[in-house]
């Protein structure tokens, strides 16, 4: 199965985020006074092939722990969805 995974990597709540604070300052300068907090993070989109969704999620979890996020300072969240494969003309097995 083909899957498309979105991985959201964000700084842990206890970690100061100067980039987020700077963006908040920019929003305030534009008059968006209602913004009380901004947290900046990373957004990664992975395309992969795995046997099933459980296996896909386990693999991405391992990737996040080993490389995509640094557990000392970051949290991550995974969104996974199957990608429909185009059915070839004349293929009745699907």
């Amino acid at each position: 199965m083909k899957y498309r995974a979105e991985v959201f990597v964000t700084l842990k709540p206890v970690v100061n985020d100067p980039a987020g604070l700077t963006i908040r300052g920019g929003l305030h300068a534009l008059g968006f006074d209602s913004v009380t907090d901004v947290r900046a993070g990373k957004y990664l989109v992975l395309s992969l092939e795995e046997s099933d969704a459980t296996q896909a999620r386990a693999r991405i979890d391992a990737m996040a722990r080993q490389l995509l996020a640094n557990a000392v300072i970051e949290d991550y969240r995974i969104e996974l969805e199957p990608v429909a494969e185009p059915v070839a003309a004349g293929d009745v097995s699907a």
């Binding site: 700084l11 100061n16 100067p18 000392v72």
Partner: peptide, 17 residues
């Protein structure tokens, strides 16, 4: 060295950006 876990902690963006 920190990413390799040979030293603890991490280095964030400078507070001043």
């Amino acid at each position: 060295l920190q990413e390799a876990r040979l030293l603890p902690g991490a280095l964030l963006r400078n507070a001043s950006c």
